[in-house]
Design a binder for these strands. Structure first.
Lengths: 215, 215
DNA sequence: GCAGGCTGACTAAGCGCTTGCTTATCGCTA
DNA sequence: TAGCGATAAGCAAGCGCTTAGTCAGCCTGC
């Protein structure tokens, strides 16, 4: 599956492998759709916007994709898969809830800053998905939330985290990370690492991990 | 100026006062636009959606408003004014940064939960405003951010808050509150007051207000 | 020589907004 | 109090344009 990248660069395809080999044109269209959906929203974007940003005629889009909605679905699916994987890897990186939390918050925050353009599409264009796709994506979102909740609950059960409402604290952590995609600006004063550093500190405070080192 | 309310109820107009008296029809159209913009986005909403939700013909919309964008602007402007006022009232409610922070976070959070429908339009449809309106709204948003930043910086200067990056902590507080509008569900397990209570606790932790009572 | 990428020209449907007209409400005059 | 002109709200119809998506045919690399 071709990776959706923030910049315009497109990975080379493998001309001899697989039956559904991603072409350069496919990736160009996806990249153009991400940019346009992020800037103007799904309904504010026309198929001509996407095609011409990819350097093609309007009809070329339909050689590679069934519909405009399919583009959104593929972007959304891929983005959610990346996020779920990144959260699971963070959770699996240690047995210590503190280390797990720091790994997840760091990767989650960095991802939503670095890939803020695609993350905006992924998080704010869900309503434009068709009902079937929406249900599928919602399941991935629930899984992401569950991973974070489990870390917080394990920390509370183990006596290293102290919060009166672990579920709401977990939701706040998720919320804080997602919203980075909304406000982050490339030309802003903070790098993605600056933000990740500070958000790790905030995460420890939110879950009430007293006197913990900041990794 | 007629108040934009979350539910469908419309305040009576005053048939003998003022030259620009808001009519019931005007308010019905605004309420319908809020619902529709929140559910489907500005570009996903047609003028026919709005008119028929308000029980009118498509043409009736243009008796009361210049364009679909004017509706969005009025909703956005009114929503931002309410938020700025609420933040300023919280800041003016005390001289103690801790009390100021708690007042602002409580009101801000409650508002974004209670009025989540209009808050979604206000926070997530900015890109659909025309450039002039966008600039105007951006100024209000900057003022809102500034109020919160000042409280955090005053607390740090006074030695009651402890955070390595007051500006980013202030942004995180704002971010957390705004994002409530995205995830809040009426049928969810928490009331707006439950969320406000917990978010007050989180706010104290985020700014590092040690051993403070949770009001 | 042909499969697949791609295009220009096209369609049906839907868009924001306008037009021409009817109806309701009002203060004012006879 | 009846009748009148003015004003504004509202509607049916539709204009000019844009939209997502289609299709027949043309290139190009294998």
């Amino acid at each position: 599956m071709s990776q959706i990248t923030e910049s315009g660069d497109v990975p080379d395809d493998h001309p001899t492998t697989g039956e559904t080999r991603p072409t350069i044109a496919r990736d160009r269209l996806i990249a153009a759709a991400v940019e346009s959906f992020a800037a103007k929203g799904f309904h504010g974007t026309t198929t001509r916007d996407i095609a011409s940003a990819a350097g093609m005629s309007p009809a070329a889009l339909y050689v590679h994709y069934k519909s405009k909605e399919e583009l959104l679905y593929l972007i959304s699916r891929s983005g959610h898969d990346v996020t779920l994987r990144l959260v699971r890897e963070g959770a699996a990186s240690s047995d210590d809830p503190v280390e797990q939390l720091l790994a997840v918050v760091r990767e989650f925050t960095m991802h939503h800053a670095r890939s803020h353009t695609s993350a905006r599409v992924v998080n704010y264009e869900l309503a434009a998905l068709n009902p079937e796709h929406y249900r599928e994506i919602s399941a991935v979102r629930r899984a992401i939330g569950q991973e974070i909740r489990q870390i917080v609950e394990a920390g509370v059960a183990g006596g290293v985290f102290h919060t009166s409402n672990p579920r709401m604290s977990a939701l706040a952590l998720l919320s804080l990370g997602v919203d980075v995609a909304r406000w982050y600006r490339e030309e802003g004063e903070w790098s993605d690492e600056d933000i990740a550093d500070h958000y790790c500190e905030l995460a420890l405070r939110i879950v009430g991990a007293h006197g913990q080192a900041t990794s």
